[in-house]
Simulated assay, not measured.
Amino acid sequence: MIEVKRSSDFPSQEKMLKIEEPYVEATIITPKDYIGDVMKLANHKRGNFKDMQYISPERVEIKYAMPLSEIIVDFFNLLKSITSGFASLDYEFLKYRPSDMIKLDILVAGEKVDELSTIIHKEKAYQMGREVTQRLRKLIPRQNFEVSIQAAIGKRVVAKERIAPFRKDVTAGLYGGDITRKRKVLEKQKSGKKKMKRIGTFSYSVSYIWRRD
Rank of each mutant, 00 (worst) to 15 (best):
Ile29Cys: 10
Arg46Met: 11
Asn48Val: 14
Phe49Gly: 04
Tyr54Ser: 13
Tyr54Cys: 07
Ser56Pro: 11
Ser56Asp: 13
Val60Pro: 07
Glu61Leu: 07
Tyr64Phe: 00
Leu68Lys: 00
Ser69Tyr: 01
Ser69Val: 07
Ile72Phe: 00
Phe76Thr: 07
Leu79Gly: 02
Lys80Pro: 10
Ser81Tyr: 14
Ile82Trp: 02
Thr83Arg: 09
Thr83Ala: 08
Ser84Ala: 15
Tyr91Asp: 06
Lys95Gly: 00
Lys95Pro: 01
Lys95Met: 01
Tyr96Lys: 01
Arg97Val: 14
Pro98Tyr: 05
Ser99Thr: 14
Met101Thr: 11
Asp105Glu: 15
Ile106Gln: 03
Ile106Phe: 01
Gly110Asp: 15
Glu111His: 12
Lys112Leu: 12
Asp114Gly: 03
Glu115Asn: 07
Leu116Ser: 04
Ser117Val: 02
Ile120Tyr: 02
His121Asn: 14
Glu123Cys: 08
Glu123Gly: 09
Tyr126Asn: 10
Gln127Pro: 01
Met128Arg: 14
Met128Leu: 11
Gly129Phe: 01
Arg130Lys: 12
Val132Arg: 04
Val132Ser: 01
Thr133His: 03
Thr133Leu: 01
Gln134Met: 02
Arg135Met: 07
Arg135Cys: 06
Leu136Trp: 02
Pro141Val: 05
Asn144Trp: 12
Phe145Glu: 12
Glu146Ile: 14
Val147Asn: 09
Ser148Phe: 10
Gln150Glu: 15
Ala151Ile: 04
Ala151Asn: 08
Lys155Gln: 13
Val157His: 09
Glu161Asp: 10
Ile163Thr: 07
Ile163Glu: 05
Pro165His: 09
Pro165Glu: 11
